[in-house]
Design a binder for these strands. Structure first.
Lengths: 154, 154
DNA sequence: CAAATACCGATATACAGTATCAATTAGGCG
DNA sequence: CGCCTAATTGATACTGTATATCGGTATTTG
Protein backbone atom coordinates (compact mmCIF):
# COMPACT_ATOMS: atom_id res chain seq x y z
CA UNK A 1 0.00 0.00 0.00
CA UNK A 2 3.00 2.21 0.39
CA UNK A 3 3.58 2.42 -3.31
CA UNK A 4 2.49 0.58 -6.41
CA UNK A 5 5.76 0.11 -8.15
CA UNK A 6 8.25 2.55 -6.73
CA UNK A 7 9.69 3.67 -10.01
CA UNK A 8 9.98 7.19 -11.34
CA UNK A 9 13.68 7.38 -10.58
CA UNK A 10 13.11 6.01 -7.10
CA UNK A 11 10.68 8.65 -5.99
CA UNK A 12 7.12 7.51 -5.44
CA UNK A 13 4.17 9.57 -4.26
CA UNK A 14 1.76 7.62 -2.02
CA UNK A 15 -0.94 10.24 -1.70
CA UNK A 16 -1.04 13.98 -2.21
CA UNK A 17 -1.66 14.37 1.52
CA UNK A 18 1.36 12.41 2.66
CA UNK A 19 3.44 14.07 -0.02
CA UNK A 20 2.66 17.35 1.71
CA UNK A 21 3.60 15.79 5.04
CA UNK A 22 6.91 14.68 3.60
CA UNK A 23 7.62 18.12 2.21
CA UNK A 24 6.77 19.65 5.52
CA UNK A 25 9.07 17.37 7.48
CA UNK A 26 11.87 17.75 4.98
CA UNK A 27 11.48 21.49 5.27
CA UNK A 28 11.72 21.35 9.03
CA UNK A 29 14.79 19.19 8.82
CA UNK A 30 16.34 21.55 6.31
CA UNK A 31 15.65 24.35 8.73
CA UNK A 32 17.81 22.53 11.23
CA UNK A 33 20.62 22.01 8.77
CA UNK A 34 19.82 18.50 7.59
CA UNK A 35 20.02 17.79 3.92
CA UNK A 36 17.21 16.88 1.65
CA UNK A 37 18.16 13.50 0.25
CA UNK A 38 16.35 10.88 -1.68
CA UNK A 39 16.75 8.02 0.81
CA UNK A 40 15.66 10.27 3.64
CA UNK A 41 12.54 11.33 1.78
CA UNK A 42 11.77 7.69 1.13
CA UNK A 43 12.02 6.90 4.81
CA UNK A 44 9.78 9.79 5.73
CA UNK A 45 7.26 8.90 3.03
CA UNK A 46 7.17 5.29 4.15
CA UNK A 47 6.71 6.35 7.75
CA UNK A 48 3.93 8.72 6.78
CA UNK A 49 2.22 6.00 4.76
CA UNK A 50 1.87 3.69 7.75
CA UNK A 51 -1.57 3.38 9.24
CA UNK A 52 -0.34 2.07 12.59
CA UNK A 53 2.80 2.23 14.68
CA UNK A 54 5.51 0.44 12.76
CA UNK A 55 8.87 -1.10 13.46
CA UNK A 56 12.19 -0.13 11.93
CA UNK A 57 12.35 -3.55 10.35
CA UNK A 58 9.01 -3.02 8.70
CA UNK A 59 10.33 0.13 7.10
CA UNK A 60 13.40 -1.73 5.94
CA UNK A 61 11.19 -4.31 4.28
CA UNK A 62 9.02 -1.62 2.77
CA UNK A 63 12.12 0.11 1.42
CA UNK A 64 14.34 -2.60 -0.02
CA UNK A 65 16.09 0.06 -2.06
CA UNK A 66 17.23 1.91 1.04
CA UNK A 67 20.05 0.59 3.19
CA UNK A 68 19.18 -0.80 6.59
CA UNK A 69 21.51 1.55 8.38
CA UNK A 70 20.00 4.48 6.55
CA UNK A 71 16.52 3.54 7.66
CA UNK A 72 17.64 3.30 11.27
CA UNK A 73 19.55 6.54 11.03
CA UNK A 74 16.62 8.27 9.42
CA UNK A 75 14.27 7.12 12.13
CA UNK A 76 16.67 8.20 14.84
CA UNK A 77 16.92 11.64 13.28
CA UNK A 78 13.16 11.93 13.05
CA UNK A 79 12.80 11.01 16.69
CA UNK A 80 15.47 13.44 17.76
CA UNK A 81 13.77 16.22 15.86
CA UNK A 82 10.38 15.28 17.30
CA UNK A 83 8.88 14.44 13.95
CA UNK A 84 8.34 10.88 14.99
CA UNK A 85 7.71 9.42 18.38
CA UNK A 86 8.53 6.04 19.76
CA UNK A 87 5.97 3.76 21.29
CA UNK A 88 6.67 0.70 23.32
CA UNK A 89 4.57 -2.43 23.14
CA UNK A 90 3.93 -4.66 26.11
CA UNK A 91 6.67 -7.03 25.02
CA UNK A 92 9.08 -4.10 24.77
CA UNK A 93 9.02 -4.09 21.01
CA UNK A 94 9.81 -0.60 19.80
CA UNK A 95 7.60 1.02 17.22
CA UNK A 96 7.34 4.44 15.70
CA UNK A 97 4.66 6.78 14.48
CA UNK A 98 4.47 10.30 13.17
CA UNK A 99 4.07 12.63 16.09
CA UNK A 100 1.07 14.84 15.82
CA UNK A 101 1.53 17.73 18.14
CA UNK A 102 3.12 18.44 21.47
CA UNK A 103 3.79 15.86 24.09
CA UNK A 104 1.18 13.25 24.80
CA UNK A 105 0.80 9.57 25.46
CA UNK A 106 -0.64 6.67 23.54
CA UNK A 107 -3.27 4.05 23.97
CA UNK A 108 -2.32 0.99 22.00
CA UNK A 109 -4.79 -1.64 20.93
CA UNK A 110 -3.45 -5.08 21.73
CA UNK A 111 -5.62 -6.57 19.01
CA UNK A 112 -5.25 -4.44 15.92
CA UNK A 113 -2.23 -2.41 16.90
CA UNK A 114 -3.96 0.92 16.43
CA UNK A 115 -2.88 3.81 18.57
CA UNK A 116 -4.89 6.72 19.88
CA UNK A 117 -3.54 9.80 21.53
CA UNK A 118 -4.43 10.06 25.16
CA UNK A 119 -5.94 13.48 25.50
CA UNK A 120 -7.24 15.44 28.43
CA UNK A 121 -4.88 13.50 30.59
CA UNK A 122 -2.76 15.35 33.09
CA UNK A 123 -0.83 12.37 34.42
CA UNK A 124 2.26 14.46 34.14
CA UNK A 125 1.34 16.72 37.03
CA UNK A 126 0.15 13.86 39.18
CA UNK A 127 3.36 11.96 38.65
CA UNK A 128 5.44 15.00 39.40
CA UNK A 129 3.56 15.56 42.62
CA UNK A 130 3.92 11.93 43.65
CA UNK A 131 7.60 12.06 42.83
CA UNK A 132 7.98 15.15 44.95
CA UNK A 133 6.48 13.29 47.87
CA UNK A 134 9.24 10.72 47.47
CA UNK A 135 11.84 13.43 47.40
CA UNK A 136 12.46 12.99 43.71
CA UNK A 137 12.70 15.65 41.08
CA UNK A 138 11.03 14.25 38.00
CA UNK A 139 12.70 14.82 34.66
CA UNK A 140 11.09 12.31 32.35
CA UNK A 141 8.96 9.24 32.05
CA UNK A 142 7.87 6.35 29.91
CA UNK A 143 4.16 5.81 29.67
CA UNK A 144 2.20 3.51 27.41
CA UNK A 145 -1.34 2.33 27.95
CA UNK A 146 -2.60 -0.95 26.49
CA UNK A 147 -6.08 -2.19 25.87
CA UNK A 148 -8.65 -2.65 23.19
CA UNK A 149 -9.85 0.03 20.88
CA UNK A 150 -13.55 0.60 20.30
CA UNK A 151 -13.67 -1.56 17.19
CA UNK A 152 -11.83 -4.45 18.79
CA UNK A 153 -13.93 -4.36 21.95
CA UNK A 154 -17.08 -5.61 20.28
CA UNK B 1 29.22 -7.05 48.19
CA UNK B 2 27.10 -10.02 47.27
CA UNK B 3 29.33 -12.48 49.01
CA UNK B 4 32.85 -12.63 50.31
CA UNK B 5 34.06 -15.87 48.86
CA UNK B 6 31.09 -17.96 47.81
CA UNK B 7 32.30 -21.27 49.08
CA UNK B 8 30.58 -23.68 51.42
CA UNK B 9 29.68 -26.14 48.67
CA UNK B 10 28.36 -23.32 46.53
CA UNK B 11 25.91 -21.96 49.01
CA UNK B 12 26.75 -18.57 50.44
CA UNK B 13 24.74 -16.54 52.91
CA UNK B 14 24.95 -12.78 52.29
CA UNK B 15 23.14 -11.59 55.37
CA UNK B 16 20.75 -13.25 57.79
CA UNK B 17 18.04 -10.93 56.57
CA UNK B 18 18.37 -11.77 52.92
CA UNK B 19 18.70 -15.44 53.81
CA UNK B 20 15.23 -15.15 55.28
CA UNK B 21 14.03 -13.45 52.13
CA UNK B 22 15.41 -16.28 50.06
CA UNK B 23 13.73 -18.88 52.21
CA UNK B 24 10.50 -17.01 51.97
CA UNK B 25 10.59 -16.77 48.22
CA UNK B 26 11.65 -20.37 47.84
CA UNK B 27 8.74 -21.37 50.06
CA UNK B 28 6.32 -19.41 47.92
CA UNK B 29 7.68 -20.98 44.78
CA UNK B 30 7.42 -24.43 46.36
CA UNK B 31 3.85 -23.65 47.17
CA UNK B 32 3.27 -23.17 43.47
CA UNK B 33 4.96 -26.41 42.57
CA UNK B 34 8.41 -25.12 41.72
CA UNK B 35 11.38 -27.06 43.03
CA UNK B 36 13.90 -25.87 45.50
CA UNK B 37 17.18 -26.03 43.65
CA UNK B 38 20.63 -24.77 44.37
CA UNK B 39 20.99 -22.58 41.25
CA UNK B 40 17.57 -21.10 41.82
CA UNK B 41 18.44 -20.18 45.40
CA UNK B 42 21.63 -18.59 44.19
CA UNK B 43 19.73 -16.46 41.72
CA UNK B 44 17.25 -15.38 44.36
CA UNK B 45 20.00 -14.64 46.85
CA UNK B 46 21.94 -12.60 44.33
CA UNK B 47 18.81 -10.67 43.41
CA UNK B 48 18.05 -10.04 47.06
CA UNK B 49 21.57 -8.84 47.66
CA UNK B 50 21.32 -6.07 45.08
CA UNK B 51 20.94 -2.57 46.39
CA UNK B 52 19.54 -1.16 43.19
CA UNK B 53 17.66 -2.41 40.15
CA UNK B 54 19.94 -4.82 38.34
CA UNK B 55 20.22 -6.37 34.91
CA UNK B 56 20.13 -10.04 34.05
CA UNK B 57 23.68 -9.76 32.82
CA UNK B 58 24.80 -8.36 36.14
CA UNK B 59 23.39 -11.39 37.87
CA UNK B 60 25.17 -13.63 35.41
CA UNK B 61 28.43 -11.93 36.22
CA UNK B 62 27.73 -12.14 39.93
CA UNK B 63 27.00 -15.82 39.57
CA UNK B 64 29.68 -17.26 37.31
CA UNK B 65 28.86 -20.69 38.68
CA UNK B 66 25.31 -20.51 37.39
CA UNK B 67 24.51 -20.90 33.71
CA UNK B 68 23.33 -17.91 31.76
CA UNK B 69 20.13 -19.56 30.67
CA UNK B 70 19.39 -20.53 34.23
CA UNK B 71 19.74 -16.98 35.44
CA UNK B 72 17.40 -15.74 32.74
CA UNK B 73 14.94 -18.53 33.43
CA UNK B 74 15.08 -17.88 37.13
CA UNK B 75 14.40 -14.21 36.67
CA UNK B 76 11.54 -14.92 34.35
CA UNK B 77 10.01 -17.25 36.90
CA UNK B 78 10.39 -14.69 39.64
CA UNK B 79 8.69 -12.07 37.52
CA UNK B 80 5.86 -14.42 36.61
CA UNK B 81 5.28 -15.24 40.25
CA UNK B 82 5.41 -11.56 41.19
CA UNK B 83 8.45 -11.95 43.38
CA UNK B 84 10.46 -9.62 41.22
CA UNK B 85 9.34 -6.75 39.08
CA UNK B 86 10.81 -5.35 35.94
CA UNK B 87 11.79 -1.74 35.54
CA UNK B 88 12.64 -0.03 32.33
CA UNK B 89 15.31 2.63 32.07
CA UNK B 90 15.06 5.57 29.72
CA UNK B 91 17.24 3.83 27.17
CA UNK B 92 14.96 0.78 27.32
CA UNK B 93 17.44 -1.24 29.30
CA UNK B 94 15.56 -3.80 31.34
CA UNK B 95 16.31 -4.16 35.02
CA UNK B 96 14.83 -6.08 37.90
CA UNK B 97 14.24 -5.61 41.57
CA UNK B 98 12.53 -7.50 44.34
CA UNK B 99 8.90 -6.50 44.42
CA UNK B 100 7.72 -5.22 47.72
CA UNK B 101 3.99 -5.42 47.81
CA UNK B 102 1.10 -5.02 45.46
CA UNK B 103 1.21 -3.15 42.21
CA UNK B 104 2.94 0.17 42.11
CA UNK B 105 5.29 2.19 39.98
CA UNK B 106 8.85 3.32 40.30
CA UNK B 107 10.80 6.52 40.38
CA UNK B 108 14.27 5.89 39.06
CA UNK B 109 17.19 8.13 39.78
CA UNK B 110 19.08 8.87 36.59
CA UNK B 111 22.22 9.58 38.59
CA UNK B 112 22.64 6.81 41.13
CA UNK B 113 20.18 4.32 39.75
CA UNK B 114 18.19 4.09 42.96
CA UNK B 115 14.52 3.36 42.76
CA UNK B 116 11.70 4.48 44.99
CA UNK B 117 8.19 3.20 44.96
CA UNK B 118 5.67 5.75 43.80
CA UNK B 119 3.05 5.75 46.50
CA UNK B 120 -0.23 7.58 46.91
CA UNK B 121 -0.46 7.70 43.18
CA UNK B 122 -3.68 6.74 41.51
CA UNK B 123 -2.54 7.18 37.93
CA UNK B 124 -4.25 3.94 37.15
CA UNK B 125 -7.73 5.37 37.52
CA UNK B 126 -6.88 8.50 35.64
CA UNK B 127 -5.43 6.54 32.76
CA UNK B 128 -8.41 4.26 32.65
CA UNK B 129 -10.76 7.24 32.53
CA UNK B 130 -8.76 8.92 29.79
CA UNK B 131 -8.69 5.66 27.84
CA UNK B 132 -12.45 5.38 28.17
CA UNK B 133 -12.82 8.81 26.68
CA UNK B 134 -10.91 7.53 23.64
CA UNK B 135 -13.17 4.52 23.43
CA UNK B 136 -10.48 2.18 24.69
CA UNK B 137 -10.79 -0.44 27.35
CA UNK B 138 -7.54 -0.37 29.27
CA UNK B 139 -5.95 -3.66 30.21
CA UNK B 140 -2.40 -2.81 31.08
CA UNK B 141 0.33 -0.21 30.98
CA UNK B 142 3.98 0.53 31.22
CA UNK B 143 4.94 3.39 33.49
CA UNK B 144 8.33 4.50 34.70
CA UNK B 145 9.24 7.87 36.08
CA UNK B 146 12.77 9.26 35.86
CA UNK B 147 14.48 11.99 37.77
CA UNK B 148 16.86 12.66 40.60
CA UNK B 149 16.52 11.28 44.05
CA UNK B 150 16.89 13.49 47.10
CA UNK B 151 20.56 12.72 47.57
CA UNK B 152 21.46 13.33 43.95
CA UNK B 153 19.50 16.57 43.74
CA UNK B 154 21.86 18.49 45.98
C1' DC C 1 36.44 24.25 -9.26
C1' DA C 2 38.24 22.26 -4.83
C1' DA C 3 38.01 21.26 -0.11
C1' DA C 4 35.14 20.11 3.63
C1' DT C 5 31.27 17.90 5.18
C1' DA C 6 27.16 15.20 5.27
C1' DC C 7 25.38 11.23 3.80
C1' DC C 8 24.92 6.55 1.96
C1' DG C 9 24.96 1.46 1.90
C1' DA C 10 27.23 -2.99 2.56
C1' DT C 11 28.95 -5.32 6.05
C1' DA C 12 30.71 -6.53 10.43
C1' DT C 13 29.85 -6.31 15.00
C1' DA C 14 27.64 -6.03 19.60
C1' DC C 15 24.24 -7.36 22.56
C1' DA C 16 20.13 -9.28 24.94
C1' DG C 17 17.44 -12.92 25.16
C1' DT C 18 15.66 -17.54 23.61
C1' DA C 19 15.79 -22.44 21.76
C1' DT C 20 17.86 -26.85 21.87
C1' DC C 21 19.06 -30.95 24.01
C1' DA C 22 21.68 -34.23 26.59
C1' DA C 23 22.77 -34.79 31.35
C1' DT C 24 21.48 -34.08 36.08
C1' DT C 25 18.54 -33.66 40.11
C1' DA C 26 14.52 -32.97 43.19
C1' DG C 27 10.63 -34.98 45.13
C1' DG C 28 7.11 -38.45 45.42
C1' DC C 29 6.15 -43.27 46.03
C1' DG C 30 6.47 -47.97 47.06
C1' DC D 1 15.89 -46.10 51.54
C1' DG D 2 16.25 -46.50 46.55
C1' DC D 3 13.71 -45.95 42.19
C1' DC D 4 11.12 -43.41 38.78
C1' DT D 5 9.49 -39.42 36.40
C1' DA D 6 9.32 -34.90 35.44
C1' DA D 7 11.51 -30.64 36.31
C1' DT D 8 15.67 -28.39 35.96
C1' DT D 9 20.22 -27.31 34.47
C1' DG D 10 24.05 -25.61 31.56
C1' DA D 11 26.74 -25.49 27.27
C1' DT D 12 25.92 -23.94 23.07
C1' DA D 13 23.75 -22.36 19.02
C1' DC D 14 20.80 -19.23 17.42
C1' DT D 15 17.67 -15.05 16.68
C1' DG D 16 16.53 -10.36 16.22
C1' DT D 17 17.51 -5.58 16.98
C1' DA D 18 20.47 -2.04 16.69
C1' DT D 19 24.94 0.22 16.14
C1' DA D 20 29.92 0.82 14.39
C1' DT D 21 32.93 0.89 10.57
C1' DC D 22 34.48 2.50 6.38
C1' DG D 23 35.12 3.31 1.50
C1' DG D 24 32.67 5.75 -1.68
C1' DT D 25 29.11 9.48 -3.19
C1' DA D 26 26.73 13.70 -3.08
C1' DT D 27 26.24 18.44 -1.56
C1' DT D 28 27.53 22.73 0.15
C1' DT D 29 30.57 26.49 0.57
C1' DG D 30 34.35 29.40 -0.34
Amino acid sequence: MISSTAKHKGHDHPTPASAAVVDDIVAQLAHQGYRDTEPRRLVIAAAAAQERPFTAEELCTALPCVGRATVYRGLRLLVETDQVCRVLLEDRELRYQLSHQGHHHHMLCAICGASADLIDCDVEDILRAAADRSGFRMSGHWLEVYGRCGECSD
